[in-house]
């Protein structure tokens, strides 16, 4: 399995001034955990943004009626980052956004650990709420990540769900 340690890309990180036009995007695929407080602080740094919405996905203890004790996440290095960059660009085309952060972990994660962070700031709450939901909906169906679940007896690849496809589909106009 290919595994990238700390494959981070920081895009458009030019600070302050009128750099807001293209905003500031942070996209990372990494093994290590992330700090919601640190990510919040980065997203909250622009006084022009009155709204900030974040989403955190975690490893939960059951799936499809079965107990889960750990999760392994595999991805397609290169394509993953490309897809996430495109999704953020698409969200920016739909809503006026300030800062955007997408962090997704790979490797083996224990029960309760954080998997994914999406954070969006904007001048207005509706744009921030919508963009955050749009990003997680499309991340689930478009970004090349795969989950392998384990309990005490067996390991099993997670099946894609129709309702995730439906959630992404409702954004089509």
């Amino acid at each position: 399995m290919s595994r990238e340690v700390n494959m981070s890309r920081e895009l458009n990180m030019s600070a302050g001034g009128d750099g807001r036009q293209h905003g500031q995007d942070l996209i990372r695929v990494q093994q290590q955990d992330f700090s919601v407080a640190d990510e919040y602080a980065r997203l909250a740094g622009d006084a022009a943004d009155g709204a900030l919405v974040t989403f955190v996905g975690k490893v939960r203890d059951f799936n499809d009626g079965r107990t889960v004790t750990s999760l392994s996440l595999e991805h397609y290095p290169g394509m993953t980052e490309g897809v996430l960059e495109r999704l953020v660009a698409q969200a920016r085309a739909r809503w006026p956004l300030g800062r955007v952060t997408v962090i997704h972990r790979v490797g083996t994660l224990a029960l309760g650990e954080q998997i994914v962070f999406i954070g969006v700031s904007s001048a207005h709450r509706q744009a921030a709420f919508s963009a955050c939901e749009y990003l997680i909906d499309f991340l689930k169906t478009q970004a090349p990540f795969w989950k392998l679940e384990a309990d005490n007896h067996e390991r099993r690849w997670v099946e894609a769900r129709d309702r995730d496809q439906d959630a992404a589909g409702r954004w089509q106009e």
Binding site: K140, F145, E159, A160
Partner: peptide, 10 residues
Amino acid sequence: VAFFPPMTGG
């Protein structure tokens, strides 16, 4: 070219 099953991230 890459072949894979439907994605299950997030």
